[in-house]
Design a protein around this nucleic acid. Structure first.
Lengths: 186, 186
DNA sequence: ATAATAAGATTAGAATACGAATTAATTGAG
DNA sequence: CTCAATTAATTCGTATTCTAATCTTATTAT
C-alpha cells in the first residue's frame, strides 16, 4: 500500500490550511483524481488498440441497446450534454460506425442507428475499464464488490448538484432515498 | 408527460450483455463517470465564480506549498503530465498568478513561483470539491468518512496500471477484519 | 394566419488531458 | 574535447467536455 503513496506525501497541505489539519476530503479528491486519470489513460490506450475511445464505445453500445434513440435522450442516458454527444457522433459517423437519420414526424429530431460495422465493433469490444482492474475486482468477495459499488454510488449521489442543496442541516437519511435503486445491503 | 420521464426505466437494465446479467463493474463505471462529471461541472462553475478552474487552483496551491518547484516535479505531485501542466501554467502566468523562472544552474529547468496575486487567490479560494459535498461528507461519522476514503484509495490502487497483476495479492486485510459497520483504526 | 415561444441539434469557444515530436541544455563516452 | 544520449520544457495534434449562441422545426397564443 505504500508503493504509490510516497508521491502524495509531499502533498500535505502546507500553506493553505492554517491549522495544519489534513482534511479527509482532500485525500478523497486526490484518490478521485487518480482514478479519473487511470480511466482516461485507459481510454486512450483503448483508442490505440481498437480505434475507439471509451466514450465512443459507450455511445455505440447505448445506440445498440436503444436503436433509433434521439440525441437528447442518448445524452441523458449516458449522463453527458447533447453537445458532447454530437461531437462524439461526428467521429463515429465519419468512421462509419453509426448513422444519423432525421426523424420523419419531427424533423428537429435525429434518430441514431448502428451500421453493421458499428455492431461488429461493439461485439468484440473490451469493456471500457482496465481488464486488470476487472480481474482484481471480480476476484473480490461478493460482499466486497457490493460494498465498493455502493460506496461509489453514495459518493456520486453526495456530489450530484441537483440535490436539496439548500438544506441547512444535513440528514443523511434523506439523501439515501432519492434516485437510486437499492439492491445493496449497506 | 415529458419525454424524459421514462428515461430512467430504460436505463435500468440494457441489452449489452447477451445473458442479461448486469455486471457490477459496469455499474461501478457508471457511478465513476457520474462522479467525474460532477467534479468537472463544479470546476466549470468555480471558474465562472472565481476565475479559476479546479486544476488551476490545484496547481497554484501546489506551487504555494513548494515554492520554486520545477514543472516535472509539480506534474508528478499532482498526477498530471508535463504537457498538461504547461498549458495550465500558460493561463496562470498570463493572468499574473504565477511566474516561470529559468533556473540558473540548469537552464532546462523552470522554477515556479506565485505572485502576490496568486498567493491571494489561493488564500480565499474554496476547495475544488463541491461545498455541498463537503458539508455532507463532514456530517458523516468519522468511521464513515474513513470508509469512503479508503474505498476510493483502494479503487485507485486497483486501477493503477503500474503494479501489473503478477501478484494478485489483495491486501484485503484492512477491510476484511472489521465488518462493514465497524469502526476502523488507521 | 401570423407572431412568439419552445425544443432538438449543432456550432463556437474554452479548458483539460494525453502522447509524440521538438528544442534547448547537460552529461557521458571515447 | 567532441558527439551521442539523456533530460526538461514546450509545441502539436487529437479527443472530451462544458455553456452559450445559433439554426431549424414545431407548437401555442393572439
Amino acid at each position: 500500500m505504500k508503493a504509490s503513496d510516497n508521491l502524495f506525501e509531499l502533498n500535505a497541505n502546507k500553506g493553505t490550511e492554517p491549522t495544519g489539519v489534513r482534511k479527509k476530503h482532500d485525500d478523497l479528491l486526490v484518490s478521485l483524481r487518480r482514478v479519473i486519470r487511470a480511466i482516461d489513460l485507459h481510454s486512450k490506450q483503448l483508442s490505440k488498440e481498437t480505434g475507439l475511445t471509451a466514450p465512443q464505445m459507450i455511445v455505440l453500445q447505448e445506440i445498440g441497446a436503444h436503436d433509433g434513440v434521439m440525441v437528447k435522450d442518448l445524452a441523458k442516458l449516458i449522463n453527458l450534454s447533447s453537445a458532447t454527444v454530437t461531437s462524439i457522433l461526428d467521429r463515429l459517423e465519419a468512421r462509419g460506425y453509426a448513422v444519423r437519420l432525421r426523424s420523419n414526424h419531427d424533423k428537429r429530431k435525429v434518430d441514431l442507428h448502428l451500421t453493421p460495422e458499428g455492431r461488429a465493433a461493439i461485439k468484440d469490444a473490451p469493456t471500457p475499464l482496465q481488464s486488470h482492474f476487472i480481474r482484481r475486482f471480480e476476484a473480490l468477495q461478493e460482499w466486497e464488490q457490493t460494498q465498493l459499488l455502493s460506496t461509489m454510488q453514495r459518493i456520486a449521489e453526495m456530489m450530484d448538484a441537483s440535490e436539496i442543496d439548500a438544506a441547512p442541516v444535513l440528514d443523511v437519511g434523506t439523501l439515501a432515498q432519492h434516485s437510486w435503486a437499492e439492491n445493496s445491503s449497506r
